[in-house]
Design a protein around this nucleic acid. Structure first.
Lengths: 108, 108
DNA sequence: CCAGGAGTTCAACGGTTGTCTAACTGTCGT
DNA sequence: ACGACAGTTAGACAACCGTTGAACTCCTGG
């Protein structure tokens, strides 16, 4: 058995965990907020916004992508990040579904 | 400035962060699920459910309480845990509010 | 072709954290 | 009062993670 919890939200148990971990770091959350703020947010923008090295930015973006929270396309030498709201909403929904109990908790 | 992000959901920025971290650990999430499953869940129950030492359980519960996700009352030698759905829902709401962007994302 | 900039990868360091055992506190039944 | 049981605290250890600088690749403009 690989799926103890039924992914009614379209989220794998593993993915759910990855998202939770991705959201746990404050800096990464900030990055996500900025990415969500603009469509097709260039990676460069993030560096200007926060006092972190580009290696760190790269690392965080990789994690966000791994969690499925953002999608990254490469445009020449630039990398554009786009948030995947569906996934975030699915996470929020699954969260309430797991611990919501009596509350029907339907999101979005 | 102590509040860069306005807590429209009633969640402090700090609390938001605490909740995110509390939710990040898979085991803690499982504990929360069990707690949410029953009202007034006795601490003992959790030990039977998972193969972890009582010290670990105690630690996790402390974290959950610190995040405001559960409330614990002591009844004699027993400790009863109760989930605070309002807080969980507030977290889910704030999450979508921060990264939801275009989506209105109203929860509960 | 070459110089420079954008992003990735690597090895390393420091801090955080989940887990344990062991000792402790507090409560109940007898 | 004693012993058994529920939970807490302290200390220690291992694993993980965020962060960095440096070396690397790839793309672009001249």
């Amino acid at each position: 058995m690989k799926k103890p919890t039924s992914p009614r939200s379209g989220l794998t148990a593993k993915q759910f965990e990855l998202i939770a971990k991705a959201l746990a770091d404050p800096r990464r959350m900030q990055l996500l907020e900025v990415i969500a703020g603009e469509e097709e947010c260039p990676c460069q923008r993030l560096r200007q916004e926060f006092p972190v090295s580009k290696a760190t930015i790269s690392h965080h973006i990789k994690e966000l992508v791994r969690a499925g929270l953002v999608e990254a396309h490469r445009d020449g030498q630039f990398l554009h990040c786009e948030i995947r709201r569906e996934v975030l909403e699915a996470y929020a929904g699954e969260l309430l579904r797991r611990a919501g109990g009596t509350s029907k908790a339907t999101v979005a």
